[in-house]
Amino acid sequence: MEQLMFIETGMGIDVHGQDITKAAVRAIKNAIHYNSMPGIKSVLPDNSLDNMVVNVKLAVPCDKEKLDINAVKQAIPFGKVSVEVMDGGMLTTSGIVIEEKGDVNDKMYIVVASVEVGY
């Protein structure tokens, strides 16, 4: 990335079902959900959102091998998206197993995201 413009952060949780991708996508959506960048297009090369660069960093507590990177990338609506996954986040108890929700145990997955935007 030549010019970093914004860094947005978020947290996503899968309380039931132990789905690391679901928690990661929620973290990204939490990071970008409350933001608007109306001037970004005017500073991008060729004034095109296709030239926006988005670097996603995810701190995940477990199941890195089960993370669906394509689903993660689809959570970002514009730009050239890269994803970096690292150890972090939190694995804790939900306090209850609800089999109807897909639980195989009582673990709650918490993922932390950083979304860097620039060109």
Rank of each mutant, 00 (worst) to 15 (best):
82 S>Q: 08
56 V>G: 01
118 G>V: 03
27 A>H: 01
34 Y>V: 13
107 K>P: 06
65 E>Y: 10
97 V>D: 05
56 V>Q: 04
36 S>C: 13
37 M>P: 00
86 M>T: 11
41 K>H: 07
102 G>D: 04
23 A>H: 01
38 P>G: 07
37 M>A: 10
71 A>N: 13
117 V>M: 09
106 D>R: 04
105 N>R: 13
11 M>V: 15
93 T>C: 09
96 I>K: 15
98 I>N: 14
15 V>K: 13
30 N>Q: 07
93 T>P: 03
117 V>H: 03
27 A>P: 00
62 C>S: 13
115 V>M: 06
89 G>V: 04
16 H>V: 08
106 D>C: 06
37 M>E: 06
32 I>S: 00
44 L>Y: 06
10 G>I: 09
49 L>I: 13
34 Y>I: 13
98 I>T: 10
118 G>L: 04
96 I>C: 14
50 D>G: 14
16 H>P: 03
74 Q>T: 11
7 I>R: 13
73 K>V: 02
85 V>N: 05
52 M>P: 01
114 S>L: 10
113 A>I: 12
1 M>N: 11
20 I>N: 04
62 C>W: 05
73 K>T: 06
64 K>T: 15
18 Q>F: 00
30 N>A: 11
115 V>P: 00
69 I>R: 02
106 D>V: 04
4 L>P: 04
109 Y>E: 03
29 K>I: 06
82 S>A: 09
30 N>L: 03
4 L>Q: 09
63 D>I: 10
74 Q>G: 14
94 S>Y: 06
30 N>S: 15
30 N>E: 08
75 A>F: 10
5 M>Y: 15
81 V>Q: 03
49 L>H: 09
109 Y>K: 11
108 M>H: 07
74 Q>W: 05
34 Y>T: 09
41 K>T: 09
1 M>G: 10
105 N>S: 15
66 K>S: 12
13 I>M: 10
93 T>K: 08
98 I>W: 12
60 V>G: 00
17 G>C: 01
72 V>N: 00
9 T>F: 10
104 V>H: 08
76 I>Y: 03
6 F>G: 03
87 D>H: 05
55 N>D: 10
116 E>Q: 12
35 N>F: 12
19 D>E: 05
111 V>I: 13
112 V>Q: 06
71 A>S: 15
33 H>M: 12
31 A>V: 02
119 Y>I: 06
23 A>Y: 00
85 V>K: 02
65 E>W: 14
110 I>T: 06
109 Y>M: 12
38 P>H: 03
81 V>C: 07
33 H>D: 14
98 I>Q: 14
20 I>P: 01
60 V>I: 15
17 G>T: 11
52 M>L: 14
58 L>G: 01
115 V>N: 00
83 V>I: 05
107 K>G: 03
110 I>A: 01
117 V>F: 05
52 M>Y: 05
21 T>C: 05
21 T>D: 01
72 V>I: 14
47 N>H: 12
56 V>K: 01
113 A>V: 07
73 K>D: 07
67 L>S: 07
98 I>E: 13
66 K>F: 10
27 A>T: 03
66 K>R: 15
67 L>H: 04
104 V>A: 12
66 K>I: 09
38 P>W: 05
38 P>K: 06
46 D>V: 11
83 V>H: 02
9 T>P: 05
117 V>C: 02
55 N>L: 13
14 D>N: 12
109 Y>H: 12
77 P>Q: 04
102 G>N: 08
35 N>K: 15
